[in-house]
Amino acid sequence: MSEAKKQAAAADEAATGMREGEETPRTAAAENNATAATPANPEGNGRKAPDPITEPDLGASAARNEQVRRQMRRQSRRGFLGLAAGALAGFGAWEWLNSRREINGTPWPFRETLEVNEQLARDFFSARRLSPVFPARRISADRLNGDLGLDENVDLATWKLQVHGLASQDGSLALTLDAIKKLPRTEMTTELKCIEGWSAVVEWAGARFTDFMKAYPPETVSGGPFSLHHREDLPTYVSMETPDGGYYVGLDMESMLHPQTLLCYERNGQALTQEHGAPRK
């Protein structure tokens, strides 16, 4: 064997050595799939290939192997260039996403997606699907979760719920707690699921928001009479704010019309305490 051929053979061995683990070369599948670089029998008459051990054929084999490696390198270059281009595009997309004009503190592509998610949730919303109720023994231990919006000590004797957007008169109203308590009382023991990820089973008592709306109808979109059954004629959102203005929440009308949505004034059989958002949440 000439020196050059020994080197070619050694290179062959090296290439074989690169391939480890689960791959093995001499499988039946390999024989069937191996078409990419297998030279066709030039005669195409089913005759046996020349004996590969003879010297001239050994040279031809080495040349052919070299050709396969070259082809592999080409393919490999293409693959890695594609991956690099993809990575670059991905990085560019990320940069683009996070440098967009913000809507309420969030780049608009994220904000728009949140809006789409909300629309989907509204479309599939059903007031008939209820949060599971629990027996009294499952009521959780007390949990206080911060005092955001509870800075001010509310004087319960003079507290009034300021309501805006009503159909009547000038659209505003100040309601005492007693006025809310005069509405039909609803009790339920359900699990409060905080957006932060914690939850607590609580026995609630209060007025259903739908009962509140029936007593104090909101201004409709059309300006016509209010009906709970014409959802598209109702305001889109209901917003709520603590007396000190420190905490604010906007809720979609579908959620507000849910039978388990309460204007709550009692928690676990007790009037709400200051830490739990007295007098009403």
Partner: peptide
């Protein structure tokens, strides 16, 4: 552990295999 040939296949789709050539 599996090595370059295996990783490269996930990028470019092909792997390099070597087969024993036989006379028959």
């Amino acid at each position: 552990r599996a090595g370059w040939n295996n990783f490269r296949a996930m990028v470019c789709g092909y792997e390099l295999v070597s087969k024993e050539e036989s006379a028959n």
